[in-house]
Design a binder for these strands. Structure first.
Length: 458
RNA sequence: GUGGUUGUAGCUCAGCUGGUUAGAGCGCUGGAUUGUGGUUCCAGAGGUCGCCGGUUCGAACCCGGUCUUCCACCCCA
């Protein structure tokens, strides 16, 4: 090998142990998706350029991986465009396709294309990789998996309630306690901007507000000033910086704050309905917190916004997010289809579970029983038993070569095999096999006919 | 995209103001133990010091570029 091979920045190989752990997480997520009535779909890893571009804002466009056209693509660019040297002008002429950036926009495209075959309301889930040309950091990759569930075609707050229950069910089964689900509403954000008289600066206002827990009240005020929000407006917004207490208390303060803003009151009312329903239904292990500073999320959210924060003390961005978007399919020409959706960040959940040591030990166990290989005749007899074990649903294997017993035992030990079976010349003659329990060191002998007895001990 | 940071054995890391043969622990291989791992003892293998170029009598060490890692912005799962 002349040069050491490598993989692109922000991508990863997954070892057998890692895949086992990832499958453990997605298995639980899938199970609950299905229990909640969602059906799986899959979409291509790349979409048409126009399907993706312009859907995530300028920042999003920059982070989309574009695919170069086939053939002599540069010769097809006209001279004027070419000599302009402007990437934004040249790009559409040399790229017709781009890698999927998230699962929501492709889903909207799917719904529009298949609208006549779909029975609405349609609840779908999708677990596939997405790609972003971002700078990698801890928990940020250029290729990563999203696990999305969305419900479209029905306009009911019950759906928001269900999604929060779904988050609760998944994180409870993963054993991840201390997860906080933050809740806000786009209309509340609009209402707040309206009340303080900064409606035209809604985005700047919310982006700054979102940084409250990171840069503090003074930092937020400074940023708002920098963005051109008047001192008077900032003064009016002050009560929002120190909102505390129970969800009901926060909603009370918010109600009076938003007085006079029709849209804001509407948002607050919706949130209080959601929160009230969930209080009656009770969550198992997650905490639901109303957070008026929560503003993140894509441009297309129009109603409730969710974000899932890892347990306190874990330095990790959000491990999930979602919300309601009332007109997502509108961009593809299908009006009046409302939707709500959430996403689980598989890669980040993995990092959190690992940091807290929450993966079950049993995931390391790839084989239940390993037979030591003592030579051709013995191996053949062992293989008969191995087959019977496999038929019984037990992960059994025979060491492929007649290597030194010590080496075979060491292999079993490293692979964390709980039982090693020996079937050598003596056992062959007596039609028996010995089983060594690798953690206790205890060794028991069984006759071939009593294999079931051994199976019972597993 | 902006600014910074990191890279030495399979892994985790030492390595002095630039000086001759680059080290440790763990892991790996062999032996003590030709049917017994995880503990112990003995021996051994394993390195273009990320890559390319420059400075120097001499570079793992200094300089430039590049790739990678992580961090802060931006944005986000």
């Amino acid at each position: 090998m002349a040069q050491k091979p490598s993989i692109p920045k922000g991508t990863r190989d997954f070892s057998p142990a890692e895949v086992a752990r990832r499958n453990y997480i997605t298995g639980i997520i899938k199970k609950h998706f299905e229990r909640f009535g969602f059906q799986p779909i899959e979409t291509p890893s790349f979409e048409n350029f126009d399907t993706l571009m312009g859907k995530y804002g300028d920042e999003g466009d920059r982070l989309i991986f574009k695919i170069l056209n086939s053939g002599d693509f540069i010769s097809k660019v006209d001279d004027i465009t070419y000599s302009s040297k402007k990437s934004s002008s040249i790009l559409p002429k040399i790229s017709d396709r781009a890698l999927r950036y998230d699962l929501t926009v492709p889903f909207a495209r799917y719904v529009v294309m298949h609208q006549n075959e779909i029975d609405f309301p349609f609840k779908r889930y999708q677990i596939q990789p997405v790609w972003r040309a971002d700078r990698p950091q801890k928990g940020r990759f250029r290729e990563f998996y999203q696990c999305d569930a969305d419900a479209v075609g029905a306009n009911s707050l019950l759906q928001e309630v269900e999604f929060i229950q779904l988050y609760d069910a998944v994180f409870t089964e993963l054993g991840l306690s201390g997860v906080t689900i933050k809740l806000n509403h786009r209309k509340i954000l609009s209402g707040m901007a309206e009340i303080i008289g900064a409606r035209h600066l809604l985005v700047d206002f919310t982006v700054a507000l979102d940084k409250l827990d990171k840069i503090g009240e003074q930092g937020v005020i400074q940023e708002m000033k920098d963005k051109g929000i008047s001192e008077n407006a900032i003064k009016k917004a002050a009560p929002l910086f120190s909102l505390s207490g129970t969800n009901a208390e926060k909603l009370n303060v918010l109600d009076s704050f938003l007085e006079g803003s029709e849209i804001g009151i509407e948002g607050a009312l919706e949130l209080s309905k959601i929160i009230n329903m969930l209080e009656k239904l009770e969550l198992q292990s997650t905490k639901l917190t109303m957070d008026v500073t929560l503003a993140r999320g894509l441009n297309y959210y129009t109603g409730a916004i969710f974000e899932v924060a890892a347990p306190e003390g874990i330095a990790m961005g959000s491990i999930g997010g979602g919300g309601r978007y009332d007109d997502l399919t509108g961009i593809f020409g299908l009006k009046d289809v409302s939707g709500v959706g959430i996403s689980f960040g598989l890669d980040r959940i993995y990092l959190v579970l690992e940091e807290l040591g929450l993966f079950p030990e049993s995931l390391d166990q790839s084989i239940d029983v390993l037979f030591v290989n003592f030579g051709e005749e013995e191996a053949l007899a062992a293989l008969t038993l191995v087959s019977r074990l496999r038929t019984a649903g037990i992960k059994a294997d025979l060491y492929p070569t007649n290597a030194k017993t010590q080496k075979q035992f060491k292999y079993a030990n490293n692979r964390k095999v709980p039982f090693v079976s020996l079937l050598g010349a003596e056992e062959l003659k007596a039609k028996t096999f010995a089983v060594k329990n690798m953690s206790s060191g205890e060794q028991i002998s069984y006759s071939w006919d009593d294999l079931d007895e051994f199976i019972k001990t597993l």
